[in-house]
Amino acid sequence: MQAVVVNNIDKTYGKVKALTDISFAVEKGELFGIIGPDGAGKTSLFRILTTLLLPSKGSAIVEGFDVVKDYKQIRKIVGYMPGRFSLYQDLSVEENLEFFATIFGTTIEENYELVKDIYTQIEPFKTRPAGKLSGGMKQKLALCCAMIHKPVILFLDEPTTGVDAVSRKEFWEMLIRLKKSGITILVSTPYMDEASLCDRVALIQNGKMLAIDKPDNIAKTFDKKLFAVKSGNNYTLLNLLKDFAKTDSVYPFGEYLHFSPSGNDFQRTELLEFLSSKGCEDVEINTQEPTIEDCFMNLMNNNS
């Protein structure tokens, strides 16, 4: 049995279509990433799967339970961490954890093993009000609270948004450890670099699924040549590349621009000539292995 099965889900808010014909399945014990820009429909999807929102059309099964009919059973077995910090800011770390343990009908002691790794990191601040924690600490506490009742499946909605780079890395290390203990994890994120840490990812944009596969496989679907281009002034270079006749797409990626040409007969010298004719010298061009982000950009382009 699969942990999550989603069949043709639609969600509309009045005239706005948030989700269109979404279908996918998540295996048990999988770390499944839902990747998409802001407003793609990630939160709506998570809220449907956690029984907080009713789908307009379609059905979804979580651990064998229907999200509409059996919502009571689902609520007992899922852990949900909303994108927005939503613990009691005026209660202390310890009180929050105790409160959520209790309303799930358990105690901290009973499931302490499960959250121990994470909780020990925030334990020094256990008497501090949750509202006064730093961003990373808040996320750790929220994760503890979402896990204190030993859920079999975790839904984490943008857990690393607004968290510093170090804490993000730590957070993902925690997720990978959690995964090893057998919990199915669905995580959504707008960060492409996090996608490669998932077992499988689904790319979502404007409420539509673009691709679902292993991160490596998705990267392999990139069927064009890709080059990393760099010069002294990347901004001028970007504008010049956009004017170049054979450009299919160009995006800034860190200190390089990822450039893919249209057609298979492209030669580097063509580009170099074009650029020098425009007065742009000292250009560096390397071949680039496509990353998942390149694929996503590509898919988004084809889609819109």
Binding site: R75, R84, S86, L87, Y88, F100
Partner: peptide
Amino acid sequence: EIGTIEQINITPI
């Protein structure tokens, strides 16, 4: 307003 109702709603309370 502060979003805690989400966390409460998801519980079997």
